[in-house]
Design a protein around this nucleic acid. Sequence first.
DNA 1: GCCGTTTTCGGCCCGACTGTTTTCAGTCG
Length: 580
Amino acid sequence: MQNRQIADIIEEMATLMELAGDNPFKCRAFHNAARLISISTGEMSVHAEAGTLTTLKGIGKGLAPIIADLALKGTSDELSALRRSVHPGLLDMLKVEGLGPKKVRLLYEKLGINSLDTLRRAAEEGKLTGLSGFGGKSRDNILRNLALLDRYRDKRLLREAETAGESVLAAVSSLPGVTVCSLAGSIRRRMSVIGDIDVLAAAPEKTHAGIIAGFGKFQDTGRVISSGPTKSSVMLDAGIRCDLRVVTPAAYPFALQYFTGSKAHNTRLRTLAKSLGWSLNEYGFTAIGNGGTRRCRTEEDLYDALGLEYIPPELREDTGEIEAASEGTLPRRIGDGELRGTFHCHTTWSDGRNSVAEMASAARELGWEYIGIADHSKAASYAGGLSVKDVTRQIAEIEELNARMRGFRIFAGSEVDILPGGSLDWDDRTLGCFDYVVASVHSGFRMSEAEATQRIIRALKHKHVTMLGHPTGRLLLEREGYPVNVKSVIDAAADYGKIIEINANPRRLDLDWSHCRYARDRGVLISINPDAHAVAGLRDVRYGVGVARKGWLEPKDVLNTLGLTDVTARLSASRARAGR
DNA sequence: GCCGTTTTCGGCCCGACTGTTTTCAGTCG
């Protein structure tokens, strides 16, 4: 069993234990282990076979045999026992906002409620009232949140959440008293999908009530979920939840750090603070013992006070950033303007909406030195894949455009389909015509993991392939992608000296940030590609830069931080190796 | 269940908000 599945099961066990009323610290240990496994770069099965599971921090003698069973046998007696002892419908009930394990358990034990349907019926029939802890408001909330669950179940893509968040931010910044405000939470950490929008504002205390009231009256606000003196949650008309928190200007850096998270990062930070004699919360440092305080003007000051280098928001996932910050070995962050060009763009030759010339011109306006055009190959008929004749004509067009430009170059590439067996959709002669080749899977998704992985590895081995496009084929919040073993693919790319793209389209973000470090450690070069189908899509590279930063990549790990001269040399060298 | 330079017991991050059990437990982030 793979890490992702193991992590899901350990997480399920933690939740089941909560529902069973187990020791909360034991439950937390399981939650922590699930998170640890999900972000681990080493396969649990390898650790299990080597007997080294307990060398992983957070896994001890209790969890190790369970993980080993899951990794090697795919089952676990403890899991089976838990599943038998807790009604499976209770897991669904936890999704209702306001219901946690204690209340779900009470509903089950006292009223036999074990599903969303029976919960809805019981609430409608007034059967909840009288149960300890449940009054009239609880009933109304449960009914409303059950309805919300149906309507707003899905998370949102980063781009969509960020757009909505920025519009709220602009409105908040105009409220009387607000001195500074920011998006926080998972948007600021550049997560791929977003559950809710966190907005933080600093303002003098006497203006807080007015700000909270104003927030509830915004044009985009659909419904106020909860509202107190300093905190308010609303459901935006766009169907995404938005939380506003208002603090005093003195508390702002602490609150910004706190509400950016992640939860795991913050927990570690507080533990570190405690070891230094400070209690840390969203308002400041308090000296343990004498109650003294310590001011910070910025987040940088806060990290400095803990003896840490400033940790950028994208890295705050408790994946080693705190240790690196204390040793001064955090990765050098890729700057916003550090890309000098990009690859994998489409034009009207296949399914793009702009011509080669228009795409090139837009790239120049972004200050880039080059753009790589990679339209679809012939098998991608649904996407207007080119014929061999089209290829010749398109390359001629690109050469003509290049002849007219100074200080900018269009690279003639192709996004060639990786066919089901792993062969490529162009013959070698055609492949040899391009400056570079992106190989991608676009069809035949119903494969086993072994088949999908071998298919891609075989394509990577092909001498004419320069880079791999969208490695897993996932569409965030839409489809899973093919079941590829990403680590094996990265290993193959390392062996064959091939590049892997971070597809920066906000629906893809594929390679995922969690795999970037492994690629970097294996020496695999990454290309941040927008997969742009129109000029506006070129700007999507910023989402790819977010993925790269979040994945600990540095400028030297990314192909398109190279200037035109270096990139040309690099592509020429790989062409020469392929005998082109 | 995990951890440990105070290491095999005792602690494990911390606060806001809600609703209801009129002083606080549960939930959420």
